[in-house]
């Protein structure tokens, strides 16, 4: 058999040292896979958005150009990037083992995110008040769903940050806590990337 090596006297049959699997790297990889599947959810939503943003889907209601608020979206983009930046500064502080710095970075990131969500709610609220809620047309259904799905991701991230603040205070930088902080950073960048795509595709391309 081609693949067969012959056994010799010093062939090693058991490998007791092999037991220490690096669980942090497994967890990080697992988290990447989760984000992959989450990215596919957004892919599905983007594809649906593409299908549902033709004139046929407006049902006489407003279309992309009337719905998106480019300037508010622009401020939102800045806010979200600010939030990511601030979280990155927290990770720098993490390298230095600086508890206070990490906490501060996270709190500021949360502040930015909350402001972002405030803008978003204001936006959607305005549309609904004008009678252009998600039940108005398929296009608006899609618009609201896309924005809301991203918003839910942010809220989830905020909750996670809150938990991490408590964990940092209670446990310090244990392996678990550090792994979670790193995964959270990836998650936060992921959600920001999704927003940037939304801004480019839905806002900019929709308006022009």
């Amino acid at each position: 058999m081609a693949t067969m090596t012959k056994a010799g006297p010093d062939t090693r049959l058991w490998n007791p040292e092999a037991d220490e699997h690096d669980s942090i790297s497994a967890r990080t990889f697992g988290f990447w896979l989760y984000m992959l599947s989450d990215a596919l959810i957004f892919t599905g939503l983007f594809a649906s958005y593409a299908v549902l943003s033709t004139p046929m889907n407006l049902a006489g209601g407003p279309g992309p150009a009337q719905v998106v608020n480019i300037t508010e979206g622009f401020w939102q983009t800045l806010l979200i990037l600010g939030s990511v930046l601030s979280y990155s500064l927290a990770s720098v502080a993490l390298k230095a083992g600086n508890k206070g710095g990490v906490a501060l970075g996270i709190v500021v990131a949360m502040g930015f995110a909350a402001a972002f969500l405030g803008f978003g709610l204001h936006d959607l609220g305005g549309l609904m008040a004008a009678g252009n809620g998600p039940d108005r047309s398929a296009y608006l259904s899609m618009f609201f769903t896309l924005i809301a799905t991203h918003g839910l991701h942010m809220i989830f991230g905020l909750l996670w940050m809150l938990v991490m603040l408590v964990q940092i205070a209670r446990f310090g930088f244990t392996a678990d806590v550090v792994a979670r902080l790193l995964n959270l950073r990836m998650f936060w960048q992921f959600q920001a990337t999704v927003w940037v795509l939304i801004y480019a595709y839905v806002y900019l391309m929709g308006a022009y």
Binding site: I41, G44, L52, N57, D135, S137, A138, S141, F144, T145
Partner: peptide, 27 residues
């Protein structure tokens, strides 16, 4: 995840009155 999206949009139609998959109103 694609199934998740399809079912979630259907859920929105059935629970929130959206129009993703209706024949009318642009669905």
């Amino acid at each position: 995840p694609v199934l998740t999206v399809a079912l979630a949009l259907l859920g929105a139609d059935r629970y929130l009155g959206t129009h993703f998959f209706t024949a009318g109103l642009g669905g």
